[in-house]
Design a protein around this nucleic acid. Structure first.
Lengths: 261, 261
DNA sequence: GAGTGGTCTAGACCACACT
DNA sequence: GTGTGGTCTAGACCACTCC
């Protein structure tokens, strides 16, 4: 499958030409290696938190030089799929690491300092049929089974985030309100531990909206108060959408922090 | 200045130890090269849009191998400071490129498609003294000279963004309302062309706020309507803040789009 | 064809963590 | 000490752009 060690770049297997692709799309060796490694990640051969084989081992396995493996791993690391630790090895990234917990939550207190984990209050967690809009976001068909949950996150006793979650019913069979309440740690860690679903990236659409009466009651603000609406679609490997989450954030003591470059 | 070609990594010049640095901070050769290149960028030896010397030339200049230069350039490219173009060379990044114009503007129409440039209406552009808050953001002293501007951006005739800008008076001497109105292209291109100031990154703090009466009038919405408040500090090379911009975005037909990874 | 960035290899040595 | 990732080199060849 992998080319023999002494092959020159020009003799690489031609990349399979997807139907309708505009250009032949030459694919260098290290990208093919990367794709193979992605398969191993996706298939669960290497699990979150575990070490993957050393660069030398991978070089032997794929019959390429260590430098080529290195480039493949570099890209995986740049995409936060693996984490390198000098002297120790390369590990499958997980949301459980202390340093990057709540990686997808960009809401920070105005005081700037990080704060402890939020207090959670799960209001609802039930099976349902996907409305059209939810189905579209999750690449399901309207009416397919989904899990729907609603919860409030508070910081220092102040309700700050009201969230609605939709999850594909297939992958999250059996998720319960008790599980959401009782699990110690971020939701995305629970997804990894209990369901083997690892979120690797997300897209958010942000708007300013006015709180309706029920939202206002839950967040203890005046009806009509401005809230930040954050609609997030989170993806697992291979750009498969696995969660739709709509958050309403109070931004009187917190703000959404973003870095542009 | 640069080490002789055959030096091994262990003989690198020790990184100058900044006062109070916690750790010795070993600095690999390619980072030293990168720092030298940053100096050339900052000093204007290589100007936005221009090609920098080829990798071979840089390798000769710094007395290192091409591979080491490559790693330095890789990092500069990852930070969007330069752009590589195979077969042509490596170029100093600029906000003028077609592809990345409005790189810092994350507001997109709900329809998803990109739209043409906004119509600008400059309401004000005057010299002023920096209020405490502005001074802090721009690393000035309260009372220092700043330029303050206010403008409205409209898309398809609909006023969508109300922006207040504060710029350090020193670097932007002579900026006029006519200049802001007449310049064809994004503001950040004008900053490069007319003032030699290139913004390389920015930080934003986002909140939901209610429009006051004057803001509502300018954006043609009801007073009290929810608006997205986007407070941006833009930095030039070496993390020097050069612009404070507070935008109010209508999000009834547009949304702020963010990618997390 | 000449010049530029991009890929790949092979080997040496360094920094770091564990034991 | 051993094993891991990290750096550096030198040389070969490929892909792309322009003349």
């Amino acid at each position: 499958m992998a080319p023999a060690p002494s092959l020159s770049a020009g003799e690489l297997a031609a990349a399979p030409d997807p139907a309708g692709a505009a250009t032949p799309a030459f694919s260098p060796l290290y990208r093919q290696i990367k794709a193979l490694m992605l398969q191993s990640l996706e298939a669960g051969e290497w699990k979150p938190g575990e070490a993957i084989p050393s660069e030398m081992d991978l070089a032997t396995r794929y019959r390429v030089s260590q430098g080529t493996v290195r480039k493949a791993v570099d890209e995986l690391a740049a995409e936060n799929l693996v984490v390198r630790r000098q002297g120790k090895g390369t590990f499958v990234a997980t949301h459980a690491e202390q340093h990057v917990r709540y990686r997808f939550l960009k809401l920070v207190p105005d005081s700037g300092n990080n704060e402890g984990p939020a207090e959670r209050s799960v209001l609802e967690c039930k099976r349902a049929r996907a409305p059209a809009e939810v189905a579209r976001a999750l690449a399901l068909r309207p009416g397919d089974a989904v899990l729907q949950a609603r919860r409030v996150l508070s910081f220092g006793g102040v309700p700050t985030i009201l969230e609605d979650l939709w999850l594909p019913g297939n992958a999250f069979k059996g998720l319960s309100a008790e599980q959401m309440t009782g699990f110690v740690g971020p939701t995305y860690v629970m997804f990894e531990v209990d369901f083997g679903v690892r979120m690797v990236r997300a897209e958010e659409k942000i708007r300013a909206v006015a709180a309706d009466t029920s939202q206002a009651a839950l967040l203890k603000v005046e009806p009509g108060s401005p809230l930040l609406s954050v609609e997030r679609v989170a993806y697992t490997y291979n750009d498969v959408p696995m969660e739709l989450r709509r958050g309403l954030y109070r931004t009187d003591t917190h703000h959404y922090r973003n870095e542009l470059s």
